[in-house]
Design a protein around this nucleic acid. Structure first.
Lengths: 274, 274
DNA sequence: CTTGACTCTCCTCTTGGGGAAGAGTGTATA
DNA sequence: TATACACTCTTCCCCAAGAGGAGAGTCAAG
């Protein structure tokens, strides 16, 4: 019978850890003095302790180890736990590898541009939402104001409330000089009857939306588009649907392309390129 | 100015997290009502929040992000942090990959033997220790008793105290039928004068010792050696020095090869095989 | 005025222990 | 035998990045 300090030195496991394993039932001392509380161990408890360490080394939590050490665990159950652990570790290796690539991407960017990009892209999940919209073909993006007038004119006759920022959806799959297929959209709290060109429907969500925010003159929003497109490509994604342009903060004078306080968010649904 | 709930919905960051970022100084609301404590945000705070998310995605801790977001951080410092992060992630990938291999090893073993090995190997660091020892060539391992008699006879004349379990060091680099080069060793608390074949010196430690415990009849200790040798090989290590055999619990009748309560630990210094 | 949706702070919980405080024990020496 | 010193005990607080909940206060619409 040896005391906890000697058992700790022998096994190279800290006294703290030994007390924890006792408390969790992983390794009970062979005897505990009822008056002093001193823990006494035996040498032949070392194999069990080493098994605990070996399982910990495989990445099992102490709680899992507790279950694995119970006598009733069959070889079959053991195999199941190991398979599970295997899958978890594989996933973590994948995640860390992907993260490593992202870090290296930042590094390359910083080396080339000698500065940090203004734009940071995040992947978000967007839920479906009830919207009213007007879709039409207009010569150039600024001409979408006519669509907005039409939509807002209709909404002002109703008592529906805006449930989020207004946005524009660009339906053209490719860039065009003229005649853009644009849908202007307003999230709502309730289902309204459609009217004329105004539709009311459930705008689908997206599992992964690559999003970037542009602040400053609207005239320079193409920089944000470029940064987003570059990010999507370099991070192994591809665009799988029409992009959205959220108007988070409108210019003080409507239509002003140079208001420095304008805020827009650009969103593109993406998937991992296979 | 929008409230925390709307800012949370917009950014897909939980209210809890936003409050934490406020508290940590990563992203302060543009205004906090002095009477109600309500936090108010502005849309143009989104880019900073997205930068926080992007850095978090690279694996930086919130504290590191706090430093990285300070204005004074130069591109040079940023590059330094990224390089550091890169190295850390690489190491973690390596560790997880090695762990994955260990799990797969367990799985293969369980498939082949249809049971779990009795022996679990752990890697420990062993510190140097002051010892007294007698080294000699004896016909077979059991004949080491003559060496023990010599060592103990000397020690009993002194007032030195045993500072750990007695052990035997097997100096032969390869297995031999007869004439083993064995050193019997006793850890001490003080430096004594050598005498005859008894040496007193600082037994070197080892960064990595592969250790396994054998309980039960000493006659079957070869199983433990075999399991340890197999483990060392399969886990990509190699033996880089003589092995030690610690006598943790001696048989009740000295020399009894069949006492089921005997406990020994076998240790081999190892290194990762290159 | 009430209701329902929001928001606030404060508390506890998560892993695997580390560090320290304050009190009690064991043993070797003076 | 008294004391010094090493050892051990329990209990509390700490880590990261929030999640969950309690209880109380706030906001806007009907």
């Amino acid at each position: 019978m040896i005391r906890i300090g000697d058992f700790s030195k022998l096994s190279r496991v800290s006294i703290k850890a030994l007390r924890l394993y006792d408390e969790m039932g992983l390794l009970k001392p062979i005897e505990v003095d009822r008056f002093t509380g001193y823990r006494y161990y035996e040498f032949d408890q070392l194999p069990r302790l080493y098994r605990i360490l070996a399982l910990k080394d495989l990445g099992f939590s102490l709680e899992e180890i507790g279950r694995l050490l119970e006598e009733e665990v069959s070889v079959e159950q053991m195999r199941g736990m190991l398979k599970l652990r295997q899958a978890e570790i594989r996933q973590r290796v994948e995640e860390e590898t992907a993260r490593l690539e992202r870090v290296e991407l930042w590094l390359r960017e910083i080396e080339q541009e000698d500065s940090m990009s203004r734009y940071d892209v995040v992947i978000k999940k967007i839920e479906p939402m009830m919207v009213a919209s007007v879709r039409g073909v207009v010569p150039t993006p600024p001409d979408q104001r006519s669509l907005w007038d039409e939509l807002m004119g209709y909404l002002q006759q109703t008592d529906a409330r805006m449930m989020g920022p207004p946005m524009a959806i660009y339906h053209d799959p490719e860039f065009k000089e003229r005649d853009w297929d644009i849908e202007v959209v307003m999230p709502l709290n309730e289902d309204l009857a459609p009217s004329g060109r105004v539709q009311v429907y459930d705008l689908p969500g997206a599992e992964k939306m690559a999003c970037v925010v542009h602040t400053g003159p609207f005239a320079m929003i193409m920089e944000a588009y470029n940064a987003l497109a570059k990010w999507i490509d370099q991070n192994g994604y591809q665009i799988v649907g029409p992009g959205r342009e959220l108007n988070l903060r409108l210019p003080d004078t409507p239509g002003d392309q140079n208001d420095p306080n304008t805020v827009n968010e650009i969103q593109f649904p993406v998937e991992k390129a296979g």
